[in-house]
Design a binder for these strands. Structure first.
Lengths: 350, 350
DNA sequence: GTGAAAGCGCTAACAC
DNA sequence: GTGTTAGCGCTTTCAC
């Protein structure tokens, strides 16, 4: 059993060293007003000299911030992604944006997994809140629009951000510009001369599915092109993508280009096209709506919508911290534009 | 500014509800002895009824465990991996093994990034220790053998595990069975009829490079095969892999199969072989020593050594928690066997 | 502006 | 076995 550990340098040491009261040190640490610049400098010198770092446990105990932000992810999906090792890097991108931004402000990001479908989701969340007492929570789909969760968070007065949600309601709504991204992808294909551009949509229970279809539709309409018979619906799974792609390609007005709403459906389309002897991009251009690592390593590498997950998460952290600090925060949803990575799967219409 | 939050249900509420003292509740929470079963049940009933969850901040303040374990990763490499989006899932696999195991024991894993080469690595680490006061730290290469780090941890009496290290010293040493894995890969190729099996080694400053070469060498020798001219050295980079592969393939006794010490060098070998018109696996069998997602999506998918990072990390967490609990822990290094995923890049010698 | 007091929720030490 | 007491390191009052 290791020895009982205590903080080696506490606020008390700093106060003694600087010859001020604990309170003054506390004020300096928290950048509060009512401290003369010279006092502040003296205290900061002592802090640096002693290598003092406040204990977040003690800070939290004192009734202030915990400097902890929880990123809530769906347990089942996340673990499945980790186990499958298909290169899905959603969590990594969240950490990239979230952890680094947290670090800049002296916060820490803790990833938590919670069962969405569980009936004890409430208990799980309450447990995390009680034990960690985070200053903020970042919700990711499918938690982002779970009223059980958002209400709980509101009741506890915890700042939270909802990623992938545009609905008004408690917390900050943040999203990628799905509609804009779909337009961008469609415009790219139109610019390449394509007239019949098929779209494989995601399931209806994801709000973003609709946004993506909408973007495609608008872009098509603006260019005077018909969407008739060019829309097929999948559920984000590989299998559903194959079926949807088949439906589109079997049509009398088969598309010369297809946009799939996610990587799995895009890969399914790629596979089906290959089986049917359709060369990509010569016979069929293909755009994926996820830029997961896989889509760059298939042949040909897929043109894809790049989802700026890291940026969105970074923004979410900033909003939560700004709210903590009492700084003003935007009222409406925060939309982050996506980019299109043009690769070898799209080419001019022959 | 959000309202001042306090714990809604504290140990006090539970004590009152169960009609016992705080201390008894504390004993029940911490599974300490000296509590009558009936008391225990009564307390647990109250805990369940009130939905009580102890605050880790308060637990830590009381001078006990923080229930936090820090996973220390190299900042530069980790961020680069995240940004490159090449499908490297080291951190994910660590979380898979580490987070889940932590959760089982009521602990939490916090990922921290620290600069290896920085001269303020000591300050960074001290800061993390002071603010988080973790019960344990998991070191990953290249931190695992950094004496600055291990000494600091020992001085602070913090349990730690060194992943990818077999050297004796403070903390627990855990590693994948690199030598065994190399033997497994070599034996696989020998069984396929190959006699000239090339090996592209990693840089000397990684201990595991040597272990891998050793495994290959032993396996070759045991089969009565010559290693002469079949060893080339790289530095884990793609570029170095190309050069090493070129050296092997240019030789008069060019190998019919190559084992590369990591995925980048394997991919480089794949590329070079393709350029030279060597079909894989028909003209050349290829084995990678990493099973990162990419190697399954190239053509052909590579036979690869699967590194059980998740298992090793889980084991590391268990050891740290066992030590915290005063339970006995192994003295020597903990070796976890690797597996070989056989895919399309290896075939019988023609 | 600064300091002194009280208390956050919990556990260690000791008494009963 | 169980309860009591005294703090952990910090922040909040509220005096000065």
């Amino acid at each position: 059993m290791p020895p009982r550990r205590r903080q080696s340098v506490t606020i008390r040491h700093v106060a003694a060293d600087a010859g001020v009261s604990l309170q003054t040190v506390s004020r300096v640490i928290n950048k509060e007003p009512n401290v003369r610049p010279e006092m502040m400098e003296r205290v900061q010198a002592s802090i640096a000299k002693l290598g003092y770092v406040p204990s977040i446990a003690a800070q939290r105990m004192g009734g202030s911030r915990s400097y902890l932000i929880v990123a809530l992810n769906d347990r089942e999906r996340t673990i499945a992604d980790w186990r499958n090792r298909q290169g899905t890097d959603w969590v990594d991108q969240m950490m990239l944006g979230g952890m680094l931004t947290c670090a800049e402000h002296g916060y820490r990001l803790i990833v938590e997994l919670v069962d969405t479908h569980s009936d004890h989701i409430e208990r799980e969340l309450l447990g995390a809140i009680a034990s960690l007492q985070p200053d903020g929570v970042i919700l990711t789909p499918p938690h982002s629009e779970n009223p059980l969760i958002t209400q709980l968070l509101e009741a506890h007065g915890i700042s939270f951000a909802r990623i992938g949600s545009l609905k008004p309601g408690g917390g900050f709504a943040l999203s990628i510009d799905d509609e804009g991204a779909a337009r961008m992808a469609t415009d790219h294909l139109i610019a390449l001369g394509h007239r019949r551009i098929g779209f494989i949509a995601g399931p209806d229970d994801y709000e973003l599915s609709g946004w993506r279809v909408e973007g495609w539709r608008k872009s098509m309409t603006a260019a005077g092109l018909s969407c008739e018979g060019q829309l097929a619906k999948g559920d984000f799974s590989f299998a559903s993508g194959r079926i949807a792609a088949g439906t589109l390609l079997d049509s009398a007005t088969a598309p010369t280009a297809i946009i799939a709403s996610n990587d799995q459906m895009a890969l399914a389309t790629l596979e089906l096209a290959r089986e049917r002897g359709l060369a990509i991009p010569d016979d069929l251009s293909l755009v994926s709506f996820d830029d997961t690592p896989i889509v760059r390593f298939v042949h040909p590498p897929l043109t894809a919508v790049v989802q700026p997950i890291a940026d969105v998460t970074a923004r979410a952290v900033e909003l939560i911290i700004a709210e903590q600090a009492g700084r003003p925060t935007p009222t409406g949803p925060v939309i982050t534009p996506a980019e299109l990575a043009i690769r070898a799967s799209t080419a001019p219409l022959r």
